[in-house]
Computed example of a mutant assay.
Amino acid sequence: MAIQRRKLDSLLTGVCASVLLTAGAQAGEMVESAISTEYESFDLVKVAGGLEHPWSVAFLPGGGYLVTQRGGTLKQIDRSGNAREVEGVPDVVASGQGGLLDVALHPDFRDNGWVYLTYSSGSEDQSYTALGRGLMEDGTLHEFEKIFEQDRGGSNHGHFGSRLAWLADGTLLMTIGDRRQEEPSQDLSSHTGSLLRLTEDGAAPADNPFADRDDAQPHIYAYGLRNSQGLVVDPADDTIWLTDHGPRGGDELNRMEAGGNYGWPVVSRGRDYRSEEPFGEARQDADMIDPVYEFLPTLAPSGLAMVTSDRFETWQGNLLAGGLRAERILRIVIEDDEVVHMEELLHGKVGRIRDVREGPNGHLYVLTDESDGGLYRMEAR
C-alpha cells in the first residue's frame, strides 16, 4: 500500500484543530454522577448515542473516536459527540452476529495512517472472518485492502470472534470464532477457533509456534477456543488476556500461551443448549490449559480492558470484562495468575456491554450493543 504523507498530515491537522477549538473540554451528557464503588467513585457520561449495534471503539490522536457498527458502517465521532459516516469501508455480510466488527489503529498511526478493521466477508451462503486496512483522510478510508481471511468459513452467521490487539513487537493478535462448528477448534490445519498472531501486513510471523509445521496454519498462536470477544495485552509485560464465550455457562478468562490448547470443544465447563447435559468430554485435561477463571453465572463476555491510568489509582492492573447478557462490567483483581477479587460495575445501568476500553486520556469507555446504542465515558472523581 502506498502511504501518502500529505494525506496523513491533512488528517492530523484537522484533528488537532478540532481539539484546539474545544479548548481541551470533553462534552457529554451526564447519566449519573458520583457512582460509588468499593475503591473508586466516578461519573458516567454519555459521549454519543444513536449508534446501531456498535461493536468497537478506537481513539484518534488528540481526541475523537472511530466506532464500528455491526450493520456495516464506521462512524467518526468528534469530542462534542457529533458523528459522521466514514467512507471507503469494505462491503460486509451483515447477518446474525456478522458484519463490521473490530477497529484498531496501527501503533504508528501518526506516521502511517493505517486503520485496521475486522469484518465478515464472502456471501450469505459462505462467510469468513477477514482483516483489512486503509489510510484515513478527511472522513474516508483510502486504498482499503483485505490483508487476511480465514481459510474455512461457514454457512451460519455466528461466532466470528474478531477482537484485535497489538503486541509490543508490532505483531497483531486476532481472534477467530468456531463458527458454531466446534470440532475444527482442535484442528491446527484450520484458523477456526483460534488466536492468531499476524504481521502488520497480515502474514504469519516466522517465529509463530506452528510456523514450521506442514499440518498447521502458520498464523495460529493458540487454539481450542469457541468465540473470543475480549482481548487485551498488559503493556507492562506483554501478557495476553482473553475472554471466551462458553455454551450455556462455561464463559472463561484465559491467560494465553504460545502454542497453547484451551480445550474447546473437548473440554468445557458449560452445558449443551439442547440437552442440558455437560458439554464436552471432561472439565479438565492434562494436555489442555485450564481457564484462570470461569464466570458464574453467565457473563456472555465481550470487551476486555486493563486499567493502567492514574485516574483510577486503586484499580491499576485490574481487568474490566464487559458482559452482554449480564449487562455489567466485572472488575477483576488478579494475583499470581489467580482471581482473588471481583466487583460488579454498571449493573443494568446502560444495557448490553459490547466493548470496554481505557482511553489515552485515562478515562474508561463503554459501548452498548443496542439498536440505539451509545458510547459512554467513566470519569474518575
Results as ranks from 00 to 15, higher is better:
A2I: 11
V15A: 14
C16W: 10
V19D: 13
V19H: 14
T22W: 01
A23L: 06
A23V: 01
G24I: 01
A25S: 12
G28R: 02
G28W: 02
M30R: 09
S33W: 02
S36F: 07
T37N: 04
T37R: 13
Y39V: 11
F42H: 04
V45G: 02
V47Q: 12
G49H: 06
E52V: 14
P54M: 06
S56E: 12
P61Q: 14
G62P: 09
G63N: 11
V67T: 14
Q69K: 10
L74A: 10
K75D: 05
R79M: 10
A83N: 15
E85S: 15
S95H: 11
G96C: 04
Q97K: 07
Q97F: 04
G99T: 09
L101T: 08
L101Y: 08
F109A: 06
R110Y: 11
L117P: 00
S121K: 00
S121D: 06
E124F: 00
Q126E: 01
T129L: 00
M136V: 01
D138I: 01
L141D: 02
H142S: 14
E145K: 15
I147T: 08
G154Q: 07
S155V: 01
H157G: 10
G158S: 09
H159C: 12
F160P: 03
S162R: 11
L164E: 13
L167Y: 12
L173H: 03
D178N: 06
D178C: 02
R179H: 02
R180G: 07
Q181W: 00
E182F: 11
S190F: 13
S194V: 06
L198C: 12
T199E: 12
A203Q: 13
P205F: 08
P205C: 09
D207V: 05
D207R: 06
D207W: 05
F210Y: 13
D212Y: 03
R213K: 07
P218Q: 03
A222I: 04
A222Y: 05
R226F: 04
R226T: 03
S228A: 15
V233S: 04
D234R: 07
A236F: 02
T239F: 00
I240Q: 03
I240F: 03
E252T: 06
M256G: 07
A258M: 13
G260W: 14
G263T: 11
W264V: 10
V267S: 07
V267R: 09
S268L: 06
G270T: 11
D272M: 11
E277V: 12
Q284Y: 07
D285S: 09
D285P: 00
D287Y: 05
D287I: 03
M288E: 09
P291H: 07
V292S: 07
Y293V: 03
E294C: 11
E294A: 11
L296R: 14
T298F: 02
S302C: 05
G303W: 01
D310V: 08
F312M: 14
E313W: 08
N318K: 09
N318D: 15
N318A: 13
L320T: 05
G322W: 01
G322R: 01
G322E: 01
R328Q: 15
V333S: 15
I334G: 13
D337E: 15
E343K: 13
L345I: 04
L345T: 06
V350Y: 08
I353R: 10
N361H: 05
G362E: 06
H363D: 15
L364D: 00
Y365E: 05
Y365W: 03
V366H: 00
R377Y: 04
E379K: 11
A380C: 12
R381N: 05
